Amino acid sequence: MTVTILRAGPLTVLKDRGRPGHAGQGVAPSGAVDRSAYARANALVGNPPGAAALECTLGGLRVRFDEPAVAVLAGTDAVLSVGGNRAGVEEVVEIPAGAEVTVTMPRRGLRSYLAVRGGFAVAEVLGSRSTDRLVGPPRPAAGDVLPIGALPPQHGEIPPLGSTGDGPRLGDGPWEVDLGPRDDWFTASAVATFLSAEYTVSPAGDSVGLRLTGPALSRSRTAELPSEGVVRGAVQVPPDGQPIVFQADHPVTGGYPVIAVLTPAAADRAAQARPGAKVRFVVAAARLID
């Protein structure tokens, strides 16, 4: 069973749970940028956790299924169209052989996940099928033929056709963070500003990091910080004082202080933030309890 890419849209990549454990080789963990939407798409079609899906930024994807298949689209309010028939939000659909499937541009959100029952079975690179610009596998392009795998026989009950999820969970509320590990490198007023001011998502961002514009955050220390490991959701502040939120394809080390780290749920919400979005940071509620 295969899928032929007819049009890749602005940015379509393969994503799974990523390739952790290779930071010593300078390889980012990668994986789906919105992990909850990716996991939900796989669950809706009955795939085991970790199956590869297509992550479509701003839609525009058009593919042809060469054999019958079952698929779903999750993550945004983009529409999955099968042979001209529009599916409902996160509706699991049966796709006939030869049918063309398109993903529209979402009105809200940024990244949609097209999951196919069986997952996309391209060859793994360092234990993962997630696209990485340095190590591969390459971004799908027009004319590429992607194989679809088979569900393992021990997998659980297959969800029925037409089942739906709860819809996109884009999360318009504040992004919850844990302060640190380098919040002490900033003045008290800078930390207070970080937790009260509104920031705007800049167009100069991608799956590596979101650049934000707003009140500059001033340091309490002028020394250089040695490079140290960073994680998804880390909020790094370079010398201009404008925060950068690291996403799935972040580097393995950073040279500027990290004032806070987004919670996993907030990092998923950040994955859906479009340029121009207004965001705020708050300390995670659980951390406010003595």
Rank of each mutant, 00 (worst) to 15 (best):
G31S: 11
P257K: 04
R280L: 05
G88F: 08
L179E: 15
V103L: 11
Q154H: 13
T4L: 06
V135D: 07
G180K: 11
D290G: 14
R108M: 10
P226M: 00
T253P: 05
G156Q: 13
F65N: 02
V82N: 07
T213A: 09
H155W: 15
L61G: 05
A192K: 11
H22E: 04
D206S: 09
R35V: 14
D290E: 15
R232F: 13
D240P: 11
G255Q: 06
F65E: 01
A266K: 02
L161A: 13
R287F: 10
G136S: 09
V245P: 07
G50L: 00
R35L: 10
N47K: 03
G50W: 04
S227L: 00
V145N: 11
P168C: 07
N42I: 02
S227D: 08
G98L: 01
E176R: 15
E55F: 00
D132L: 09
H155V: 15
G241E: 10
V261C: 13
G205W: 11
G84K: 10
A52K: 05
T76N: 10
Q247G: 02
A121K: 06
P181W: 09
G241L: 02
F120T: 00
T263D: 08
A23D: 13
A216Q: 11
A260I: 08
D183V: 03
G214A: 04
V145G: 06
S189C: 04
Y199I: 03
T131S: 15
G75W: 09
E224P: 01
A71W: 09
R35G: 13
E228Q: 09
D144Y: 13
R129W: 11
G162W: 13
T4S: 05
I95R: 08
R129N: 09
G229F: 00
A271P: 08
S112Q: 02
S196A: 14
F194M: 06
V27Q: 12
A78K: 12
G162H: 14
A260H: 09
Y256A: 08
R86I: 10
Q272W: 00
R269T: 01
P243C: 06
H22P: 04
D184V: 05
A28L: 05
T193G: 05
V201G: 03
E55D: 00
Q242P: 03
G21D: 12
G31C: 11
L14R: 12
L58C: 05
R40C: 12
T12H: 02
V27Y: 13
S112R: 03
R232G: 13
V282Q: 14
R274F: 00
T104I: 01
A43Y: 01
L114N: 12
G205T: 09
G127S: 03
R139F: 07
G88I: 09
P152V: 03
P168D: 06
D268Q: 03
F246L: 15
P20H: 07
L6W: 11
L288A: 04
V177K: 04
R7A: 15
A43D: 03
S30W: 11
P159Q: 12
V261H: 03
G214L: 05
R108P: 06
R287K: 13
R40L: 15
N42D: 08
A8S: 15
G60I: 07
I158D: 12
